[in-house]
């Protein structure tokens, strides 16, 4: 060390010797780390390319409007798209009031006590429960015990329970963003707590709540395991007309086609993935736009 130090010209502050080596390693590390960060993105792009490459030729109006079939080139997504739309619409209808109601109660009405802490802890834990557990819950309670069968209603109830925790937690976050001065202002004018929530807290939190809901629905749109457990892995060759109908969804159809050994069905799966990903990316984009648009200054 001493020799090295003596060798360095004292007139400059340029790094030399061990310091220079350490600096070089550190500078080099930037690119290695950046590379690691981009791996995920690169994999995503590569897979996206592979999928489009595989499935693009199968995409057509017929593919979207045909019922499933034993023959890969005649099979289509008609019943699974309809089933997805039915089950997601019903999930939205069920989840919105319960999720927003829960979040409002917890943030604006609940006494700050042990019970509230328990509800909060419970939500955090439910958010981490695997979807297949929600699936067997749905199977045991909705399909068998309540005897709803493998119906759209049973599917929507299962998905509602599944997305509820994450929706509530994100909605609470949105409600907390509403400044307390707005709440005080409303109460000081003689409004009741509910009037305050109805006219000021909810409108203020709505963009955040909508973002949370859209993201949750996009997760439900891709859910497969829970719906297979309640019996959505089935051949549907009719248009759903009621919530009591059996149903299947696009992700379940993708699963169905993926596990077939024939190459032609794999192509169908790739084409269906394109359809599903476009829908999910659109939802995510909508959520991002809402979030940016209403971002508090």
């Amino acid at each position: 060390m001493a020799v090295e130090r003596a060798a360095a010209p004292l007139a400059t502050l340029a790094a030399s010797g061990a310091v220079a080596r350490r600096q070089a390693v550190s500078r080099g590390s930037r690119y290695v780390l950046l590379g690691a960060t981009l791996i995920g993105v690169a994999v995503l792009l590569f897979l996206g390319y592979e999928t489009v490459d595989q499935g693009w030729s199968r995409l057509s109006i017929d593919f979207l409007t045909n019922y499933p079939s034993r023959f890969a080139d005649r099979a289509g997504l008609r019943s699974s798209i309809l089933g997805t739309v039915w089950v997601l619409s019903l999930t939205i209808v069920l989840a919105i009031p319960v999720a927003i109601g829960t979040a409002i109660w917890m943030e604006e009405f609940a006494p700050r006590n042990k019970l509230l802490a328990l509800v909060q802890l419970n939500l955090a834990n439910l958010a981490g429960v695997p979807s297949i557990i929600y699936g067997i819950l749905g199977l045991a309670v909705f399909v068998r015990f309540l005897d709803l069968g493998p119906s759209i209603l049973a599917g929507a109830l299962t998905l509602t329970l599944m997305i509820l925790p994450m929706t509530v937690i994100a909605s609470q976050e949105a409600i907390r963003q509403v400044p307390s001065s707005i709440r005080e202002g409303a109460l000081a004018l003689g409004s009741t707590r509910w009037q305050m929530v109805r006219y000021h807290v909810l409108p203020g939190a709505m963009p955040g709540i909508m973002t949370a809901l859209i993201l949750a629905i996009s997760r439900a749109a891709g859910e497969t395991a829970a719906l297979i457990m309640i019996g959505a892995f089935t051949f549907i060759a009719f248009d759903n007309t009621s919530v009591q109908d059996d149903f299947t969804t696009v992700p379940v159809q993708i699963y169905n086609w993926t596990i077939r050994p024939q190459e032609a069905f794999r192509q169908n799966a790739a084409a269906a993935i394109i359809v599903l990903m476009v829908a999910i990316l659109t939802m995510n984009l909508a959520a991002a736009i809402i979030r940016e648009r209403f971002r508090r200054p």
Binding site: G40, L44, L47, E50, T51, Q54, L215, S218, R219, A221, G222, E223, T224, A225, P251, I254, Y255, T258, R266, A269, A270, I273, L276, M277, I280, N284
Partner: peptide, 16 residues
């Protein structure tokens, strides 16, 4: 965004 990809899609990639 990688977390938002449905796992059945990952499953397809894993196999094919």
């Amino acid at each position: 965004a990688l977390a938002g990809v449905p796992t059945v899609v990952y499953a397809y990639f894993a196999l094919t």
